[in-house]
């Protein structure tokens, strides 16, 4: 049984002028699974995400989405395919409430006016689908929410419309332990609902807690894509720091 990856990149290369950032990178993300993207600072994680999201189209290589070859040259292309990126800064509007933020730029209309009831109903269903009860009213302004609550709103925004791939950039980085744990459980639930989730994280323990696969970047090259069930903590640390670990990674 082989499942078609939702996202399948092959031989991706990217340079900024003379600076070569990604070299022959292959990367896949599967529906229903969390693929953790790990690597040291400067390994190319953000550039790879920007290639996927159409911010920086790759110079070379093949981009496949659900088995079809596609061209992604702008964030809009990625968004139309159903790829959503939750950046570390979350990009939420402080002065608007939860519902308004969820539907920002894609408000539901009822003839000439906005369909507020419909939007609130969808917002509620989405949040309860993530088993989130801690937000209180869906009409609370973002400025009154904690860091973890904001992260949940950003994630809910990513899954509101029928997205296929959600990429989360360090979702637990700025949070306390209780909120981090809750976010990890929410992220796990996203994948269990059938989405392909890509999780960028520096926290190896978080990666082991929720991921199904681990993709390790080292100096712009993909040194390993392995099942989390097959590797140990030490191997992953070695992949990140040396590009090789046990029997996986770069051949020396």
């Amino acid at each position: 049984m082989s499942v078609t990856p939702a996202l399948d990149l092959r031989g991706i290369g990217k340079s900024f002028g003379p600076v070569k950032v990604l070299d022959d990178v292959s990367f896949s993300a599967y529906p229903g699974e969390i693929t953790a993207l790990v690597g040291d600072n400067g390994a190319g994680k953000s550039t790879l995400v920007n290639c996927i999201g159409g911010v920086h189209p790759p110079d070379s290589g093949e981009y496949r989405f659900e088995g079809r070859r596609v061209r992604v040259h702008s964030p809009r292309d990625a968004s139309l395919l159903g790829i959503e990126i939750v950046h570390q800064d979350l990009a939420l509007c402080e002065n608007l409430d939860i519902v308004q933020n969820l539907f920002l730029g894609r408000e539901q209309r009822n003839g000439l006016t906005l369909d507020e009831d419909m939007m609130e109903e969808i917002a509620r269903t989405t949040l309860s689908g993530l088993a989130v009860r801690t937000l209180g009213s869906a009409r609370r302004p973002i400025s009154t929410l904690s860091g973890g609550q904001r992260q949940i709103v950003a994630i809910a925004r990513a899954v509101l419309l029928d997205n296929k791939v959600v990429i989360l950039d360090e979702p637990t980085a700025a949070l306390g332990i209780a909120q981090s744990q809750q976010i990890l459980e929410v992220v796990r639930r996203l994948a269990d609902k059938g989405l392909a989730v890509v999780l960028i994280s520096h926290n190896i323990n978080d990666v082991f807690a929720v991921s199904d696969r681990i993709a390790a970047l080292y100096l712009g090259r993909m040194v390993a894509q392995v099942r989390t069930a097959d590797v140990t903590h030490r191997q992953v640390v070695e992949l990140i720091t040396r590009g090789t670990g046990g029997e996986v990674g770069l051949r020396r």
Binding site: N205, F208, A209, A229, T232
Partner: peptide, 20 residues
């Protein structure tokens, strides 16, 4: 709490100790 806090050692031992 222990699983979320110690997933790395738990799954490392599992990777070595359980049948593939």
């Amino acid at each position: 709490d222990i699983y979320l806090g110690a997933a790395a050692p738990i799954r490392s031992v599992l990777a070595n100790g359980a049948l593939a």
